[in-house]
Simulated assay, not measured.
Amino acid sequence: MTATRAVLSAGSNIGDRLGHLNSVVERFADDLVAVSPVYSTPPWGGVEQEDFYNITLIVEGPHGPYEWLTIGAELEEAADRTREVRWGPRTLDVDVITVSEAGDVVHSDDPRLLLPHPRAADRAFVLVPWLAIEPDATLWTPAGVQPVATLIDRIDPAERAGVVPVAQLPVARPR
């Protein structure tokens, strides 16, 4: 397997939010390139619930797109994640935002793993933390490759203002 590079987003709004996010950083430590600060973000999707803590990670390693997804799902399971309400509260959510292999963006229409993530370009809680760790980040969209900074500028200012840094997780050994 050729090494791939992935951008992952993780969020938590039930229980030990920082602890759940820290479990993600610890699990991906061997592949970690960068991890954003922790941001407090309002819930997305209209379900009444507590604010989330979110991070974005950049990882690189000998894993294919489905392996990144599987590792995220294992972390969610370890955190006792349940899927009762779409966009509802959760102990941990780990999403694969985009994957590249040999510099090429991986595209997938598989309902289990849509790549690049079809709603990432509209979500400040993904883009703001990502831009914090990769100022030149770009995301493939149906309109073409877009700078993440440009995508953020298109999001409602009130939504952007709701993404507030609150903490920095300890990182054992980022590359």
Results as ranks from 00 to 15, higher is better:
I133V: 12
G72I: 00
E67W: 02
I58R: 14
P165E: 12
L169M: 10
P89R: 13
N22C: 11
A161T: 01
T98Q: 14
R112V: 13
D95H: 08
A137H: 15
A120P: 06
T56P: 05
H20K: 07
V85Q: 00
H117G: 06
L127D: 05
E67K: 00
S12T: 01
I55E: 11
V47Q: 08
V145P: 02
V94M: 07
A34H: 06
T138M: 09
A132G: 12
V148N: 01
P62C: 08
L115A: 10
S40L: 13
A161G: 02
V7R: 09
L115D: 08
P157M: 10
R160K: 05
I55Q: 09
L114R: 12
D16T: 07
A120M: 02
A29P: 05
P147I: 14
T91H: 03
A6K: 09
G15P: 10
T70K: 11
L75H: 03
R27K: 15
G19E: 06
P147T: 10
G64E: 07
D136T: 05
P43C: 09
L115F: 12
R27A: 15
A79V: 01
W140P: 11
V35T: 04
D95T: 02
W130F: 04
S23F: 01
I152E: 10
D156R: 13
L32H: 04
S12H: 01
L115E: 06
W130C: 03
P118M: 10
T2A: 13
E50A: 15
L18I: 04
V25H: 00
F28Y: 14
P37R: 11
V163I: 12
L92A: 07
L32V: 08
D95S: 08
E48P: 11
S9A: 15
V171C: 11
L32P: 05
E67P: 06
V47A: 02
P135W: 04
S108F: 04
V25R: 06
E84A: 14
V166R: 03
A172V: 11
P170N: 12
P157D: 04
E77N: 11
V163F: 05
G61W: 03
V35D: 04
G144M: 00
D109M: 13
E77R: 13
E26M: 13
P142V: 10
R5C: 14
A78P: 03
I58Y: 07
I58F: 03
A161W: 05
Q146C: 06
E50I: 00
N13A: 00
R175E: 09
R27I: 11
A172K: 03
T150E: 15
A6V: 09
I55H: 06
